[in-house]
């Protein structure tokens, strides 16, 4: 009887261990030790509540560095999304910080890509980067959760993701393109009315066989260097067909 009890206990233990191993990781993984225990519990609670509300996964992973040297934070975020944070029925997203390079990246899966547009990712970036720069990590992660909640709620209410209200850009672009094409077409039509013009060259009269380059001498003189600051806006370099998202520096 004692032996049977031992076997059952072992089976239950093994099953529990296996189940735990298979279970999805928590929504906050702070291996860079940016948060204290209390903050960790509080943030996990907040994100879990949002996940339950929208039936999605909203995760945060902070790392001291990337597991593989030279790996892009965006690629790693996509990997995490595919392997671990994929249990949200309506979509999954993860914010990854690389403290070594001070990169942040929000990756979204296909479903979440339809809910949060590039403009949404930009909005999240704008709301978290100031706090990240000030090393107010709890505030940054809380803002991330809050903005994600707003964007998902907007989608649920309107059936489409929040996009930038860019009517002025559209109108100005249309007017600009209209003016340019009209000027070009007008110039072309007017030019076609005359084919008179003085010739500046005599290439038809050059005996091509007689042309010889007899001497050449090339001398390097100097180099001009122009530096242009890179845009600090959100980069979507790791986005592909299966993933959306974007990131930047902090």
């Amino acid at each position: 009887m004692k032996k049977i009890f031992q076997v059952i206990t072992t089976v239950v233990f093994v099953f529990c261990f296996w189940a735990q191993a298979l279970a999805a990781p928590p929504s906050v993984v702070d291996s860079a030790y940016l948060l204290n225990d209390q903050q960790l519990v509080s943030l996990t609670k907040t994100l879990n509540a949002l996940e339950k509300k929208h039936d999605v996964r909203i995760a945060v992973v902070a790392r001291k560095s990337m597991p593989t040297k030279g790996e892009k934070v965006g690629e790693y975020a996509n990997f995490l999304l595919d392997k671990h944070f994929n249990d949200g029925a309506k979509g999954n997203m993860v914010l990854v910080l690389n403290m070594e390079t001070r990169d942040w990246y929000v990756a979204t899966d296909v479903k979440m890509k339809n809910i949060i547009s590039d403009y949404g990712i930009e909005t999240i970036g704008k709301s978290i980067v100031p706090a990240l720069k000030n090393q107010e990590y709890l505030k940054a992660f809380t803002e991330y959760g809050k903005k994600s909640d707003e964007l998902i709620t907007y989608y649920e209410e309107n059936g489409k993701p929040l996009k930038e209200d860019n009517w002025l850009t559209i109108i100005l672009s249309a007017l600009g393109a209209g003016s340019l094409i009209t000027l070009g077409a007008g110039y072309t039509m007017k030019s076609s009315m005359s084919n008179v013009g003085e010739r500046q060259t005599a290439s038809e009269y050059l005996n091509q066989d007689s042309f010889q380059v007899r001497e050449t001498a090339d001398l390097f003189m100097y180099t001009d260097i122009t530096r242009t600051a890179k845009s600090k806006t959100v980069s979507t370099s790791s986005a592909d067909d299966k993933h959306g998202g974007g990131g930047g520096k902090f």
Binding site: L206, N207, S210, F211, Q212, V213, R214, E215, T216, A217, D218, L219, F220, M221, Y222, T223, D224, I225, T226, R227, T228, K230
Partner: peptide, 16 residues
């Protein structure tokens, strides 16, 4: 983004 422009002095002597 860094753009380096290298300038050269080039002599050409041709006949035609």
């Amino acid at each position: 983004t860094v753009t380096e422009t290298h300038y050269y002095d080039c002599e050409r002597f041709g006949k035609a």
